[in-house]
Structures are given as C-alpha cells and as structure tokens.
C-alpha cells in the first residue's frame, strides 16, 4: 500500500543526529539488542546534560562491565570503562583527584550491586559526590541471562532454570538507608520523567541514585516468556505506578508486579568533600590545604 505523502509534512532529514555532539557517532551501531532499554537511558542522559547546560569538558562518565557497562564507550565525554564492579571506586578516585568534575556512573545492576555492592553502600554512606544511573534489567545480560541480585522471585534465569528463590535487593531502600542524598526510580519508558530526574540530579550533590528499570527482550523476556521488546514497554506503561515520596521500604519489585516509580529521596546533606573540608578547616585552620578543584597535579616549573 502506498500513499502520497503530504509535502508539507515532509521535512529534510537532519544532517546529523540531534545527540551527535554527545555521542561517539563513529562507534554507532552500538552493541545493544533491539528493544533493549539501555540506549534510551543514554539518550536521556545526553538530553539532560544538554538541558542542564553542563560544561561537557568537565563531565566524566564511568562504567563497569556488562551491557550497561558499554554506555561510557558511546558518550563523547571523558569516558572510562573500568573493571567489573569497580565503576564506583574508580569514579571516586576521579572525583577526589579533581573535585571540579561532574562524575557520572552508568552501569548495570549486576555490576553495581552484585559484584560491586560493597562499593555502592560505602559510596552512599560517605555521600561521595557521584551521580549513579543504575540500569536494572533484572538479569546478567552480557554473559547470557544468569541470575542477578535484582532478579524478582520466581523469575527464570539461565542459572535459576526452575525460577529464582533468592530474595532480590530493593535498591532505592538500599541506597536510602546507606545514606544517599537523592534516590529516584523510573523505567526506560519514562523518557521525559527520566530526563527530568537526571537533570535534577545533576543539580544536586552527594550520592545520587537513579534506578532505571529496563527491558531485556533477548534474555529476561525470552526466558520468562514475556514477549517482545514492545510487550515489555507495554507492560511498563500499564504497570508503572508513580508515587513520589514513597517509603522506600515499600518499593520492592515482584515478578511482573507493579513498579513503583518516582522520586523517593531528595535531601540536602553534606558530601564527603564538604565534610572533609569543614572538619579539617575547623581542626587545622589555616594549615588546611585542600585539594585544588582542578586537581592535585603538580605542573612542571
């Protein structure tokens, strides 16, 4: 079937992708599967950087290992693809080494709270000035669909072929109870809300967690017979429940249950660097010499 296009509706295609200034276009196509939510999150992050008017020269992005771990590799920023689970401590070093940087961690659930769980809670406890975008697809995608610490009870994975019997983490609650200053959750379907949340988090300080529930059609949906990428999106549309300020103890995710989204925590509290500066300033007075914002590199002279 062919129809004549209304010439008034036909626009010249843009010469370049609108996100091109933020992306390494020479690396596109990316590695992510059709229907995967990670690319959407990357786009929301890039859009938020643009809207927030960030100086991109001062933005660093760090990822660990896994599907989401590839995010740093596609951003046209100072990008670091670190070891499995260690994106947060790597990012901590970047932030403390050059305090003026805006440091974002984009990585997955297995990376950040499986192998990297210890770093996650300690960075939150210290309120290190990091924005963490945790893409939760309930499964280890890159390695072939193994069980994750976020896999809902009864969901099937390649290492829990009879269904998962381990209780999963409730990540907003984990972050909030560990001391995070900002905690929000959205799904990869909430493009505008997620973008706003990232933009808002850029404006905040301290340990900021944005959990993004993302579909994994290739593994999670297939192993659990949940249909295609589109049906995953439809599920989010029908089952996301927005409850700003919800008690984080009540935002667990059960298998195919509703997903409570929203902003749960937004507290102004001092960051690690602020606490350190204040403390040493009080104790040492003029003798305290903090790390300069531009870093501790000593130039030739």
């Amino acid at each position: 079937m062919s129809e004549e296009m209304n010439p008034e509706l036909v626009r010249e295609p843009p010469m370049e992708h609108p996100m091109a200034p933020y992306l390494r276009m020479e690396r596109i196509p990316h590695v992510w599967c059709p229907g995967c939510g990670i690319g959407t999150v990357v786009q929301c992050y890039a859009t938020a950087l643009e809207k927030a008017g960030c100086d991109l020269d001062k933005v660093s992005v760090v990822s660990g290992i896994g599907c989401s771990g590839r995010a740093a590799g596609y951003m046209k920023l100072d990008g670091f693809h670190a070891t499995h689970g260690r994106a947060i401590p790597f990012a901590t070093g970047l932030k403390l080494g050059r305090p003026e940087l805006l440091v974002t961690v984009i990585s997955g659930d297995g990376d950040l709270v499986g192998i990297g769980g210890n770093h996650f809670i300690h960075a939150a406890r210290r309120n290190i000035d990091l924005m963490v975008i945790l893409i939760n697809n309930f499964i280890y995608g890159m390695t072939g669909g193994q069980n994750a610490p976020t896999t809902p009870l009864t969901a099937k994975t390649s290492t829990m072929p009879f269904g998962n019997f381990e209780p999963p983490f409730n990540l907003p609650h984990l972050a909030a109870s560990s001391g995070a200053s900002y905690v929000a959750r959205w799904t990869a379907l909430h493009i505008r809300r997620l973008t706003w949340a990232i933009e808002e988090a850029i404006d905040r300080k301290g340990f900021r967690l944005i959990e993004v529930i993302a579909p994994c059609p290739t593994l999670y949906s297939r192993l659990n017979k949940l249909g295609t990428g589109l049906s995953g999106m439809r599920f989010y549309h029908d089952n996301a429940e927005i409850r700003h300020g919800a008690d984080t103890r009540e935002v667990d995710i059960d298998f195919q249950s509703s997903i409570v989204c929203g902003k749960f925590v937004d507290d102004e509290k001092p960051t690690f660097n602020e606490l350190m500066d204040k403390h040493y300033g009080t104790i040492l007075g003029d003798r305290y010499k903090p790390m300069p914002p531009e870093g501790g590199m000593i130039h030739a002279g």
Partner: peptide, 20 residues
C-alpha cells in the same frame, strides 16, 4: 576505602586526573 579492590580502582581513577 572499603577494601583493597576499591583502593586500587580509586587510584587508577584518580591518576586519570593527573594527580599522582
């Protein structure tokens, strides 16, 4: 840091700011 894994990762990160 919370352990030696984190310590070494932080050192690598910090070095990329030029800070020894």
């Amino acid at each position: 840091m919370e352990d030696e894994l984190a310590s070494m990762a932080a050192v690598v990160g910090a070095s990329w700011t030029g800070t020894k």
